[in-house]
Amino acid sequence: MKDLGLLILRVCSSILMLTHGLPKFLKLIAANFEFGDPLGIGAAPSLFLAVIGEFICPIFIIIGFKTRWATVPTIITMLVAAFIVHASDPYQVKEKAFLFLLTFTVILLVGPGKYSLDKR
Rank of each mutant, 00 (worst) to 15 (best):
M1I: 01
M1E: 02
D3N: 00
L4M: 02
L4I: 01
L4F: 03
L6T: 01
L6Q: 01
L7R: 01
L7V: 02
L7F: 04
I8M: 00
I8T: 01
L9I: 01
L9V: 00
L9G: 02
R10F: 01
C12P: 04
S14D: 02
S14L: 08
I15D: 02
I15G: 05
L16S: 12
L18G: 11
T19P: 06
H20I: 05
H20D: 09
H20P: 06
G21R: 09
L22R: 11
L22K: 12
P23G: 13
P23A: 14
K24L: 11
K24F: 07
F25P: 09
F25V: 15
L26P: 10
L26A: 15
L26G: 13
K27N: 15
K27H: 13
K27M: 15
K27Q: 15
L28W: 11
L28C: 13
A30H: 13
A31I: 13
A31S: 14
E34A: 15
D37G: 11
P38I: 12
P38Y: 11
L39A: 15
L39D: 06
L39T: 13
G40K: 09
G40L: 10
I41C: 05
I41E: 10
I41A: 12
A43V: 11
A44T: 13
A44H: 13
A44P: 07
P45E: 08
S46V: 04
S46A: 10
S46L: 09
S46G: 08
S46P: 02
L47E: 05
L49K: 03
A50D: 06
V51G: 06
V51Y: 04
I52V: 14
I52S: 07
G53I: 08
F55W: 03
I56D: 03
C57G: 01
I59A: 01
F60G: 02
I61K: 00
I62A: 00
I63F: 12
F65D: 02
K66R: 14
K66I: 14
K66C: 15
T67S: 08
W69I: 15
A70P: 04
A70T: 04
T71W: 03
T71H: 03
V72R: 00
P73G: 05
I76Y: 10
T77D: 12
T77L: 10
M78W: 07
L79G: 10
L79M: 11
V80R: 03
V80P: 01
A82M: 09
V85H: 07
H86F: 07
A87R: 09
A87I: 07
P90Y: 06
P90M: 10
P90T: 09
P90A: 11
Y91T: 11
Y91V: 14
Y91W: 15
Q92L: 14
V93E: 12
K94T: 05
K94Q: 14
K94Y: 04
E95K: 04
K96Y: 10
K96I: 14
A97W: 03
F98G: 02
F98W: 10
F100A: 01
L101Y: 04
L101W: 05
L101M: 10
L102R: 00
L102F: 11
L102Y: 06
L102C: 11
L102H: 01
T103R: 00
F104T: 02
F104G: 02
T105F: 08
T105Q: 08
V106C: 11
I107G: 00
L108G: 04
L108Q: 05
V110F: 08
P112E: 07
G113F: 02
K114A: 12
Y115T: 03
Y115H: 06
S116H: 06
D118G: 08
R120A: 15
R120N: 11
R120S: 14
